[in-house]
Design a protein around this nucleic acid. Sequence first.
DNA 1: TTGAAAGCGCTAACAA
DNA 2: TTGTTAGCGCTTTCAA
Lengths: 332, 332
Amino acid sequence: MRHVAALAGVGIKTVSRVINDESGVSEATRQKVLNASQQLNYQLDMAAGSLRRAGRRTLSAGLLLPSVSNPFSGEINRAMEDALGARGIAVFAASLDDDPQREQTIIAAFLGRRVDGLILTPIAKSQAYAIPEHSRDLPMVFIDREPVGIEADAVVTNNSAGGATAAAHLLSHGHVRLAYLGDRTEIQTARLRRQGFIEELGRQGIPTSTVSVREDLHDEESARLATLELLTAADPPTAIFSSQNLVTFGAMRALRELGLSKQVALIGFDDFTLADMMDPGVTVIAQHPERIGKLAAERLLARIDGDTSAPHTYVVPSELIQRGSGEIRPRA
Amino acid sequence: MRHVAALAGVGIKTVSRVINDESGVSEATRQKVLNASQQLNYQLDMAAGSLRRAGRRTLSAGLLLPSVSNPFSGEINRAMEDALGARGIAVFAASLDDDPQREQTIIAAFLGRRVDGLILTPIAKSQAYAIPEHSRDLPMVFIDREPVGIEADAVVTNNSAGGATAAAHLLSHGHVRLAYLGDRTEIQTARLRRQGFIEELGRQGIPTSTVSVREDLHDEESARLATLELLTAADPPTAIFSSQNLVTFGAMRALRELGLSKQVALIGFDDFTLADMMDPGVTVIAQHPERIGKLAAERLLARIDGDTSAPHTYVVPSELIQRGSGEIRPRA
DNA sequence: TTGAAAGCGCTAACAA
DNA sequence: TTGTTAGCGCTTTCAA
C-alpha cells in the first residue's frame, strides 16, 4: 500500500480510501491510485486490515462437520459457502470424525484465526467449554444436533417426526412385526429417530415386544450383520427402519443376500444418490442439508450483524420419499 | 498478550516465547505465563503474528474445487485437510461451478487472505493470469487437470490410459460396435478419456466408423437422452463407455428403460457409491481422489518449504474395477 | 479532499 | 534468561 501511494504520489490513507471504496476522493485521484495499484498488482491484505478495523472482522467463518467427504456434509458445506460467500466471507471447513478431542482442537485453531463465527455439528457430550468464547461474542450456530451445556442457535432436522412418519407409513401398509436399526445411542439424532419411531408404534397400539431394536450400528458391515441375524431368527420382522445412510446400505445388502429385497419393507433415514435406481427403489425419510446449511448461514450472519435475540432452535422438516421399498406389504 | 504479560509480571516477549514454545525460558517463568494465559483464556492471534513473522506464513491454504458438494471433490478436500492439517494449515475450500469468472474471483479472495498456497482444478482456458502471483513465490499445485499458460506442479489421473483400459476391456469381451459418451469437449479430462478410448480401438483395428461418439453431455438427463437415441437407432452399439459419473447415471437409466441393462455392456469413468449394488454391478475406471489429494498436498508442502525444482506433473493411475456391466458380451 | 500519526497484536533484532 | 524497541500493512482519528 505504501508502494502504491508512492507511485501514485498520494498519501497512504488516500490509497486506503480508494481500495475500500470510501467516499471523499476526487475522481482524478481515484484514477491515479487505481492505475498505480494495477501496475503493482496490488492486493489488499485483509488480515492486516482486520487487525485495526472496528469490530475486527476477518471475513472468515469456521465450519465443523462430521467429514467434508460425506455427501450430507458436502451439501451443507456448499450451502454455507454460497450464503456466506455472498457476503464476502470465506469458510474454513474441518472434519470431526466423531472425535470430541478434535472438536476442541479445531475450534482452537479457528479461534486463533479469529473467525467471525462458527457453525458446528457438536460431537462432545457438552459444549460448555465454548461458553467463554460464545459469551465473548463469538457467534455460533449448531447444526444437525442441538448443543448441550450452552445456549446457542441451532438448526436441526425434525428427527423424531421423521421416525414417526416412517413408523406410520409402515403400519399403514399392514406391518406388525417391525425392526429399528440404529446408530450409536450416544448420538442425539439417532436417539430421536428411534424415539419418534417407537412412540408412533406405541400410539398405534403396537406392543414393544414385537419391535426388534438393534443399535450401535455405525457402519455398513455391522448393519449388514445385524440385519442378517434379525431376518434369519425366528419370527423375523416384515419391515425395517434404518436410522442412517450407512445402516441403510448394510440392510440393503443383507436383504439382497437373503433374496428378500422385495419381501421385506425398508425405509431409510437420509436420502442418497441412486436410491431410485435400486431394485426396488428405496423409500427414505429425506433431510434437506441444503436448507439446513442455508438457514444456519443466515442465522450466523444475523448474529454477526448484531442480532442479540434469545437463542432459538430452528427445525427443518424431513420428507418421506416413496420409491417402493417402503410400500412393500407383509406376506399374507 | 499484553494482558497476559502484565498478569504474569513478565515482558511481552517472554509470553510470546512461551506461547510459541521457543527455548530459553526458565520453567518457573513458563508456568507463570501459562497460568496467566489460562486465567485470561488467552488465544494467540495468528494473523497478527504472521504480519511480522519471517516468511509471513498464515498457515492457511486455498482449495478450488468443482464443487465441495460433489463426492469426488469431497474426497480430495478431505485428503487435503488431513495432510495440511497435520502441519497446522487450515484450508479454505471453494466451489468453481465450471465458471472461469469465479475462478479468478475466488483466487483474488484467497490472495487477499494471504494463503500460503493454492491447490486448484483449473476451469479457465488459461491460468496465465496467475503468473504474477506464482512467480512472486506463491506455491500452486493443480489437480485433476493440467494448467495452461503457466508452469506449475500438477497431479492428475491418467485419463487417456483409463480410456484405453476401458476400450481394451470391452474389446476383449468381443464387442465391435462401441459408443463413447463424453462430457463437454472443452474439458481437458474429457478429451483425454475419449482420446485414450478411441486410440486404443484404433490400435486394435476397430474402424472409427463403427464407434459412435456423443459429446457435450454434462448432466444425467442429456446423457440419458443421448443413450436412448443411440440404442434405438439402427445398428446400435453393444458396449458403452461413459466418461464421467453423471453421464454414467444417465446411461444406466436409459439402459434400464429399454430393458437392456443386461444386454449392453457399460463401463463408466469414476467410481461411485453403491455401484456394486446395481443390477448388474457397474464396472468402472476408478480414480483415486484421496491419493490425488494427498499427493497434491505433499507437493504444496514441499513448495512451501522451499522446494524450487522444476514443476512436474504427477500421474495417479486409474483402476479398472469389474462388477458385471463391463463384462457383458455382445449377443451372438 | 487529503494526509500525518498512532496503534491493532504480534515477532525480529538486539540489548541487558 | 529476559526485556525493549521497532515495525509488519493496515484503519482510525484528527488535523490541515
